[in-house]
């Protein structure tokens, strides 16, 4: 008995169907995963080198909870103060010598060490993160977090 020969058109159709099926399944799985996932804590790594933040700009989505991991590679102390203009102004002219991390988004980082702080971005807006040790902000130790609306 001679086997039946498949034409190239049939093979292409089969390939197309397979791809479409795979895509559909993948999209469905991804949508389901998105719907089932609880709010996650994201991690952003920031490096301080030569009294500069790297990166100097971070983009977030409204509702994100972010764990900032800040590496201070400098031989001098720094701090990470996240907040709006009012917060920055208060720290620039304030007298608080150090920040133990108990306030979300505010932590001191000794020379050569790493500290973490967690912050939830509840509204779409832009916030700054800066170091307010004497002269550091003016030297350029400032970055920005741009928070966009969810959905």
């Amino acid at each position: 008995m001679r086997p039946r020969r498949r034409s190239p058109l049939v093979l292409l159709l089969a390939l197309g169907v397979a791809l479409a099926a795979t895509l559909s399944v993948a999209l469905a799985a991804w949508s389901w995963a998105q719907a089932q996932d609880p709010p996650r804590t994201r991690t952003v790594v920031i490096t301080i080198h030569w009294s500069r933040f790297q990166p100097s700009e971070v983009r977030m989505t409204q509702g994100d909870t972010v764990r900032f991991v800040i590496h201070n590679t400098d031989p001098i102390d720094h701090e990470f103060i996240l907040g709006d203009e009012q917060v920055q102004d208060a720290h620039e002219h304030g007298t608080q010598a150090s920040h133990d991390g108990s306030v979300p988004g505010q932590v001191s980082i000794p020379a050569g060490q790493t500290r973490t702080t967690t912050y939830t971005f509840e509204r779409p807006l832009s916030l700054a993160y800066a170091c307010h040790l004497p002269g550091h902000y003016r030297y350029g130790m400032v970055g920005v977090v741009r928070v966009t609306a969810s959905g």
Binding site: L11, A14, A26
Partner: peptide, 20 residues
């Protein structure tokens, strides 16, 4: 996932052509 699906489809086509 798409790459995996594509690989599977290509393997199927290859097997069919081999049989042919």
């Amino acid at each position: 996932v798409l790459a995996l699906g594509l690989s599977g489809a290509l393997l199927s086509v290859g097997a069919a052509r081999s049989r042919s």
